[in-house]
Structures are given as C-alpha cells and as structure tokens.
Amino acid sequence: MYPAKFEYYRANTLQETIHLLQQHSGAKLLAGGHSLIPIMKLRLAQPPVLIDIGRISELSGVMKTDGRLRIGSLTTHAMLAASEAVKKHCPILAEAAAQIADPAVRNKGTIGGNLAHADPGSDLPAVTLALDGVIHITGPEGDRQVNASDFFLDLLTTDLKPEEVLTAVELPALEERTGSCYLKFEHPASGYAVCGAAAVVALGGDGSCERAGLCFNGVTATPYRASAVTEALAGRNLEDATIDQAVTEHLSIDDPMGDTYASGPYRVELAKVYSKRALKKARDRARS
C-alpha cells in the first residue's frame, strides 16, 4: 500500500502537460487518480513521473453546440450525473455515471481518466461507443479526433500515444423520439460492471426503429458492440418479442472474459438478458 518512489509535476496548461510528457518517458497523467493510485499502491504500476493535470480548468465542463455535447476530459462522474445538459441531451451518460462505484469515486474520477484507462469493467466506454462518440486528443503534433469505435484497442489499451492527452469527448445530443438506457450488473466487491448494457433506440415517425445502438462493458476485453442485433432491429416495430428474438438470434460473443466471480458463459447470458431489458427500456423512453 506504499507506492514506489516517483516524481510529481503539476501542469497548469495543456501545452505544459504535453511538454512534460515529452520530457519524461514513462510519465503517467494524474487526474482523479482512482484507477492509477490504487495500482501504484499495490506497486503493480511504478511510473517514475506523475503529471497532475487536475487543475487545468479548460479540460473540465460540459458544452453544448450544434447538436453535440462536448465534455471536457476532467469532468467528474458526479458532474456528469448532475449536469442538466447531460441529463437532457445525453441521459444515458448521466444514468451510467450515477452508477459508477460510490460517491467518493464519483466526486474525483473523471470521464477522461475512465476512457483512457480502458478498464473492461468501467461504465463509460460502452456508453461512449453506443452513442458513436468522438474522442478528442492533443499531442505534440496538434489535435486529432478518433471515433470511439477505433479508440479501445485491447484490455487497458487505447489509441492514445504516450505523449498525448485525451482532452474531450464529443457526443451527439439525442433527438426527439430517441431513448436510451444503461443497465448494470455490478460486481459486489469492486462495483465494476460484470455486465453493463448500453442501449440507444431512435424511432421514426411511424414508430419503427430508425437506428439503434447496443454495447456492453464487462463482457469482453474492450467494449463490445452488438451490431448484428441492432441491424436486425432496424426498420422493425419494436415489440417485446421482436427485441427478444433479435437478441436471442443475433447476439453471439465468442471471446468473453471470465473470473472466479462470473465465468465467460455466464457473462454472455447476462449480456443477453440485460440487452433485452435495456433495449425495451430505451424503447419505452423513446415512445414517451
């Protein structure tokens, strides 16, 4: 519970952060610290340098422009859960953020840290993916944007380069007749998602499914997108039986994770049950 020796720098601007990253190989960014510090205390991570970005105010906050929400990477889970703009335009994000761990973690943990750490049990990756979010990144060569679908590469591995900073997440503001739902089966010890299902359903004027998104946390090493299910739902009238059938016939996950608490096959079963329930709830919300 005592981390190995490290150097600490506090960055005051984004540019200073990148400069420090360039100077110190192996440096890690410290934001909320709720993933990094525990593994440092167990000495599973021993970064020689920490760069504290927690005070860079430009990286924090929610902005709405042109039908999009831009969420600064330092925005905490508690801020997401309480934000009127998020609740109105991206309610699934507020719903998921409110289910992360406990109040202490939600008050310190950030969306940027959550996505950059890419823990398979985190709650925000699948939500970001289901919403087709875009990740904003700044590095020595300037700014770039990556689609969520290209961001999560493997267990705890993302497209971020060592000298880059995740600065914001851009999400579409959900329109009329669009409903969303995040349903979570949490691990009783860690509070991480054993299975978290993020469902988004957009209905057309005739009430049929125009578009749907369905992604999972906790089941596979990276957030899993169940495209076959949502494709099967497109254009259909979303009766319960339609949803059940689409999930039963089209959800197949070949490489689930498993541990002593929940095996791979069980997680797949959870994904089936939770996706049916999440899709139905998203549909109901779209209708109301």
Partner: peptide
C-alpha cells in the same frame, strides 16, 4: 450468505485478497 468468500486457487494463492475482489 450472498457475497463474502475467501477463495484459494490450486496453488494456494488467495484470489480474493483485495477489496476489489472480496465483497464486504
């Protein structure tokens, strides 16, 4: 009844040695 268990693997390693795994 519902959550707590200290689990050892076949090598005698405590798999639930942290509060990340041991559910209070």
């Amino acid at each position: 009844a519902l959550w707590e268990e200290a689990i050892y693997d076949g090598n005698g390693q405590l798999l639930t040695g942290e509060l990340l795994d041991y559910a209070v």
